[in-house]
Amino acid sequence: MRDADFFRRWMVATAAVVEREADRLTELDSPIGDADHGSNLMRGFTAVRAALNKDTPAAPGAVLQHAGRTLISTVGGASGPLYGTLLRRTGKELGDAAEVSDEDFRGALDAGVGAVARLGGAAPGDKTMLDALIPGVAALGTSYRAAADAAEGGALATVPMRAHKGRASYLGERSVGHQDPGATSSALLLGALADVADGLL
């Protein structure tokens, strides 16, 4: 069973890895985006870390909802509502239980990914964060590490894709050959989850 502190540590670990990888995310966002993904996400997750360290809600669902709300109000780019919706919906699905099973969490995260798909209107293969999240969540039944690896593989697989959503889609064929920044940060999110679940953080 996973308690609120597990989810707080996941968010704190995500903030750390986003901070570490911010320059790379922004670099990936330069040829096909507006070169702000790293700085935007870092601002968002830094705010999440500060909010949760100041006042950690008692239930896992509330931790993720608080994190999601914070992202929506601090990021300023499309990743704010997208990651915000992912965490908020996942948190809502978890309800107000003080502890949740891995299986419940898997179902909740799956619902969160579905909410992201509806919000952005993207489908798999559109070169978006879904291309990392969908394979990641599908592998969650095996292990957290398998989910992280699948998400990482999904992010790498966005390189030959042509973007069909967001600013990158304006570039048409010229979006091919670049790894999607949102899929990359989604892999970081699931990587941080695996690190926390494996007791590495």
């Binding site: 300023g76 780019g77 704010g80 509502p81 997208l82 919706t85 909410a115 919000l119 967001g166």
Partner: peptide, 14 residues
């Protein structure tokens, strides 16, 4: 466009 659309949708959703 972009985040303007998504932010309003996310706020309405909640």
């Amino acid at each position: 466009l972009g985040s303007a659309v998504l932010t309003v949708k996310a706020l309405l959703e909640d």
